[in-house]
Write a protein that binds this DNA or RNA. Structure first.
Length: 974
DNA sequence: GCCACCTGC
DNA sequence: TCTGGCAGGTGGC
């Protein structure tokens, strides 16, 4: 890769051909249900191999439609002699499609065309868009498509061995140019397809003729020159047949398509989807193989938590089922009845009607997605659309959608793939329903992108007032469905009720849809009918969702008013909404993981864990479950008689701080501490992260929650990439597995230095603290010097460590008890430290007092950017509750302002990276740190941007400092 | 589904 | 009175 640009690779699989080959190559297997699976097995094997070796970025699998094609119109006997599909095979086509669904690969077939023609067309389109194209088939005909950019791989014997043909390969094997393969067939025919050819002309004669003249037409033009009277005669007599045969053998490369290359984007599959499919098919060896790839060390056992494509419905129906089993409480029946009554008010429409449904609405419209609980992978099941007076649910997963061809004109708001901008647009033709079959393409899977076009257009239409709930989920999910919005900021003009409600009530955690509605319209009848609908599956749920959308549409004005009246509008519009775009991009892009590195560390850990386990059993004199705190407590405090330092509600505490106190007395306790550390790494980080890697991209895509924490921070889940170990070297090593996604790229990490203390200095205006930051001394050393009343040069490392704990304690609203626990010193000693601190930093004490006073007066606390957190407990008569609220009043402005600051920095950084046309991509945010990957040549520029965006994010009365680190892995960026 | 525990900032 | 803020994931029960 000279220029660092990786050309996208389009993989085209000839589904019918490969399944046929596999059927005859693999012994006839059947699963325990008696269904034959051998062809699907071979097919799956081939897919795994090709993914592994080729790493395609785009994939399509083409199938024959099994009916008459245009070839039958020109030659009735076409494929006339072909044997019927064996019954043992025919059932496997559907299985193969199901498997492709799980792989999240697009497959397609067309009314009037064979799989060959679809492949021919897509290969041309791919080639024109400067893709590398690879075709997998068992059919030599497809060799005619081979070119500089297109290779054709023929299955050998089995299905796993592929012979790859480039132009030179074709010439070597057949002494022909790829395109002459057609002429070859024109002359010699093809018995299997019942293509006649010229009687008496076989491969050798045909090749000789083509060698000399080049094509069928040229041969016929020069019949007179041909030696051999018999051959001459035959060619004369059958020249029509030769031309017809050539035509039959010619792959059509202009099939009208309604999809774009972008629709074929392959982003990898979810391990659990594919393993579930393999489990159903009982492909045990493939199960092991696909797990090995991902480095899964142990079998995933969470069957109950298994993820379904229809996650929403699935969960709901399971619940409903449990209800019925549990004796069907009559409340549920009554709610069902209630739903029945409101059913008339809601229309359920099919996807075909989407455009017309959208057109029928006027005024502010609410748009709700159904089925996006895990939006990286879930399929959009439907969408609810509503205005104040009307509600419609449009089904998207309806099975009938695949039966009909759909063709929509291109939509302005819809994006065209980057590659298509370069001239690779797919042929496009409007087709009305009466002419279905006249060449329109029926997309089996990614009808979505095209069919959703009216919805995307609506979402991107700046002239339409809208309200949605979690626009980021929409963006990530639409991307996964192969839809990109062309507008840089689609949804920007749509009110995002998730973010709006969060700003209004951050203290209560992530708002649900009902919270958003109820906060704006307290009298909305959510508790009865709408919650009831949610407990049902299928249609009742759809009706419920549509009614929620209706209420949400009515909530729009009120929510905007409330945001404005609380001065939250700017935070909403200038921070949270722009940030949601940045986060969506980060989530979609993901971070590359070196799975083998992770596995290698896991293997080392496994060995030591095994040794530790045995040693612990030996020291305990018995085997027990070390992971069970109950059993461990009994061993330590009863059997071995160690002093129980602390108790929990349920028994002895065995937490690390307790064990650390006991360690000097007992070798076993030391071993247990190490065991705990290593098993934590193994289960949470090695196994947990491996489970989350997507194949074959080898990336992890986390979800950042933007509307969850009480302070305004982000959180990260599935997996959490904000708590990857760093303190202990054993855990820190894991960061070696976080690598740049391209060769020659670097990881750049930038973290704020002492950001919370700087914010405290700003808020308190404490002279000594401000001075410490203005002069750039080490703040913990300065604190130690003050608290312990010694010159800075005489501060010992112990004093600095203790001062650091005091600093953190102050931020969190410390007590002498807490500090004493933390530093393992007496309470009196801790109390003296705190007193001394406040004596030396009096501004800090007065800030703390003022923060509590503000909270008591207003009932909430706020950050520099006006982010609010309600503190109802501030007036509580319960000491604990009140104290907690007071500590929160002191801490939240600090932690929350730090959150505001890095959010602004992220938005600015994203803008600058884009404005400068840099390839650098933001990968992660870890509260006070940003991690970016970029080509080595961009490191300097990116570092400057990061430092500047972060340091200038919010102007404080003390300077902000950012530390920058560059490395080949996250570990090295330290 | 809660608890205890451990990881991060 | 009973003890420092904010998170997410795992395993046991």
């Amino acid at each position: 890769m000279i220029d660092g640009f990786k050309r996208p690779k389009l993989l085209l699989i000839d589904g019918n051909s490969v399944l046929y080959r596999a059927f005859f190559a693999v012994p006839l297997l059947s699963n325990s249900q008696g269904a034959y699976t051998n062809a699907v097995y071979g097919f799956a094997q081939m897919i795994l191999n090709v993914l592994n070796q080729e790493k395609p970025t785009h994939i399509a699998v083409a199938f024959d439609k099994g009916k008459a094609t245009f070839r039958h119109q020109i030659y009735e006997a076409y494929k006339g002699k072909r044997a019927k599909t064996p019954p043992e095979l025919s059932g496997q086509f559907e299985m193969a499609r199901m498997l492709l669904d799980q792989f999240r690969m697009r497959y397609l077939e067309a009314e009037d065309y064979e799989a060959d023609d679809l492949i021919g067309t897509l290969a041309r389109v791919g080639e024109e868009a400067d893709f590398d194209v690879m075709i997998v088939t068992g059919d030599k005909d497809l060799l005619q498509l081979v070119s500089e950019r297109v290779t054709t791989c023929l299955t050998k014997k089995g299905t796993t061995d592929l012979t790859r043909y480039d132009p030179a390969g074709v010439r070597e094997r057949f002494s022909l140019d790829p395109l002459q393969v057609i002429d070859l067939k024109g002359l010699m025919g093809d018995a299997s397809d019942n293509i006649p050819g010229v009687p008496g002309v076989g491969e050798k004669t045909a090749i000789k003729l083509l060698d000399e003249y080049g094509s069928v037409e040229a041969v016929l033009d020069h019949i007179d020159e041909i030696s051999g009277a018999k051959l001459k005669e035959r060619l004369r007599e059958h020249c029509e047949l030769a031309l017809l045969s050539k035509r039959l053998a010619t792959i059509e490369r202009d099939v009208p398509l309604t999809l774009t290359l972008d629709d074929l984007r392959f982003a990898g599959f979810a391990l659990e989807d594919v393993t579930a499919a393999f489990r159903t098919l009982e492909f045990k060896s493939l199960l092991t193989r696909v797990r090995d790839w991902q480095g899964i060390l142990q079998e995933t056992t969470q069957v109950g938590g298994q993820h379904s494509l229809f996650a929403g419905d699935d969960t709901l129906s399971t619940d409903a089922h449990t209800y019925r089993e549990g004796g069907a409480p009559s409340a549920v029946d009554e709610r069902a009845k209630e739903i029945e009554q409101i059913r008339e008010d809601v229309r359920i429409a099919s996807l075909d009607e989407l455009s017309e449904v959208i057109a029928s609405f006027e005024g502010p419209i609410a748009i709700l997605a159904d089925g996006l609980r895990r939006y990286h992978t879930d399929r959009l099941a439907g969408v609810a659309l509503a205005t104040a007076d009307r509600a419609v649910y449009v089904k998207i997963m309806a099975s009938e959608s695949s039966e009909r061809s759909v063709s929509e004109p291109p939509v302005d708001g819809m994006a065209v793939d980057r590659t298509l901008d370069q001239g690779g647009a797919l042929p496009h033709r409007e087709t009305d329903d009466s002419s279905v079959g006249a060449g329109a393409l029926a997309l089996q899977q990614n009808a979505f992108a095209r069919q959703l076009a009216p919805l995307i257009e609506l979402l991107c239409d700046e002239t339409r007032e809208k309200i949605v709930f979690d626009a980021k989920a929409w963006r990530v999910a639409l991307h996964a469905h192969g839809v990109e919005a062309a507008s840089a900021r689609p949804f920007a003009h749509a009110l995002d009720a998730l973010l709006g409600t969060y700003l209004l009530r951050a203290s209560e955690g992530a708002p649900e849809l009902a919270d958003a509605i109820l906060y704006a319209i307290p009298e909305a009848p959510i508790p009865e009918s709408l919650y009831a609908a949610r407990e049902q599956s299928g249609e009742p749920y759809q009706i419920g969702l549509a009614l929620w959308a209706q209420w949400l549409s009515r909530a729009r004005e009120a929510m905007i008013e409330q945001l404005k009246s609380k001065n939250l509008w700017s935070l909403y519009e200038d921070v949270e909404v722009p940030l949601s775009y940045v986060l969506a991009d980060m989530e979609i892009y993901g971070v590359k993981i070196d799975a083998s590195r992770l596995k290698a560390i896991g293997a080392e850990l496994a060995i030591e864990i095994e040794q530790l386990t045995n040693r612990i059993y030996e020291l305990a004199g018995t085997e027990f479950n070390i992971n069970s705190t109950k059993q461990l407590g009994e061993i330590l405090f009863e059997r071995m008689g160690l002093p129980p330092v602390k108790k929990t509600k349920t028994g002895y505490s065995t937490s690390a701080d307790v064990l650390e106190k006991l360690a000097p007395q007992s070798e076993m306790v030391t071993e247990i501490l190490r065991y705990r550390m290593l098993t934590k790494l193994q289960s949470t980080y090695i196994e947990g992260l491996l489970r989350e890697i997507r194949w074959p991209s080898s990336r992890i895509h986390t979800s950042f929650h933007q509307a969850k924490t009480a302070t305004g921070r982000l959180s990260s889940e599935e997996p959490n990439l904000q708590n990857i170990p760093i303190r202990m070297e054993e855990g820190r090593r894991l960061r070696h597995a976080f690598v740049p996604s391209q060769d020659g790229w670097k990881m750049v990490a930038a973290d704020y230095s002492q950001v919370e203390l700087r914010i405290m200095a700003h808020l308190s205006r404490d002279e000594a603290l401000v001075d410490a930051f203005m002069t750039g001394v080490d703040v913990h050393t300065r604190t130690a010097s003050q608290v312990f009343d010694v010159p800075e040069s005489e501060v010992t490392s112990l004093m600095r460590r203790q001062a650091k704990a005091v600093n953190f304690g102050i931020i969190y609203g410390i007590s002498d008890f807490g500090l004493s626990q933390n530093l393992n010193i007496s309470r009196a000693q801790a109390g003296a430290f705190i007193e001394q601190y406040f004596a030396k930093f009096p501004g800090v004490r007065s800030y703390m007092d003022q923060a509590v006073k503000f909270a008591k007066e207003h009932g909430y606390t706020e950050t520099v950017l006006g982010r609010r957190r309600d503190l109802p407990g501030i007036h509580s008569r319960n000491f604990n509750e009140r104290s907690f609220a007071e500590r929160t009043a002191m801490n939240t402005p600090i932690q929350g302002t730090a959150a505001d600051m890095i959010k602004v920095a992220m938005i600015r950084l994203a803008e600058r990276l884009r404005a400068d046309g840099l390839e650098a991509r933001m990968l992660l945010q870890v509260h006070d740190e940003l991690i970016v990957e970029c080509p080595a040549r961009e490191v300097e520029m990116v570092s400057l941007h990061m430092a500047e965006a972060m340091e200038q994010a919010i102007e404080l009365s003390v300077p902000l400092r950012v530390d920058l680190h560059v490395g080949d892995t996250w570990y090295d960026a330290k």
